[in-house]
Design a protein around this nucleic acid. Sequence first.
DNA 1: AAAGCGCTCAACCGCAATACC
DNA 2: TGGTATTGCGGTTGAGCGCTT
Length: 222
Amino acid sequence: MDRRHSIRVWHRGTWTREEDQVLISCIEAHGAKKWSSIARKAGLKRSGKSCRLRWLNYLRPDIKRGNITEEEEDLIIRLHKLLGNRYFYFFSACLMWSLIAGRLPGRTDNEIKNYWNKIVKKKMQKSTGLAHCHSLNTQPCTENIAMLDEIKEADSCNIDPNAFMEIEMEENFNWSNSLTDVDNNLVIEAAAGNWMVRELSPPFICSFDDLLGSEDALFYYN
DNA sequence: AAAGCGCTCAACCGCAATACC
DNA sequence: TGGTATTGCGGTTGAGCGCTT
């Protein structure tokens, strides 16, 4: 058959248990890749795209079921505040939900996105208002680097590379920018007198010393 | 009982990036 | 190197469910 002229009519709508089982069996046999090929091999009248989505968002064995916990919600809020600012205003919101989902094992980007639309957005609009999240300033950074060095020297920071690292700041420290390395691996945020150093892409782990001691100076400022 | 309404979330869409030939 | 296919993303939709009237 000449594939250039073939027309396939896909089945749409909610997946049935039978379809799920067929898809799972096919993925177990051939692996979760080449989705168009899987869709053909499975004999389901579903597009490769639809098979991929069903697997990633529902059928994967490592999917975490159940409600979003308070800790997860807090993480979502904080990461959205951070990434929402950076990506929406500077990089067209690319990768935001998948990055957030990457910090929540077993949760999918679709789930996070739905949860945000359902709960978090409402809460934030009710309380502080979203405008607060979008109030980044852009300021010169050289004096701030010097100030960070002073803080390092003062040994006033408490480092935990596996969690958010919160570092006490002087009240007059006036800088509300985000800071990332060139690979977008690390983000620092100044807010409400605290610095939060966030490791976003495993296995990248960076201590505060690594950060401030970097001679590469490969940081740029949004 | 049933009609109307709002909410949730699985699924789809369109687009951009990447892979492949 | 250019065209096509595939993958992966965020935005959006709509079926189904539960609550209210």
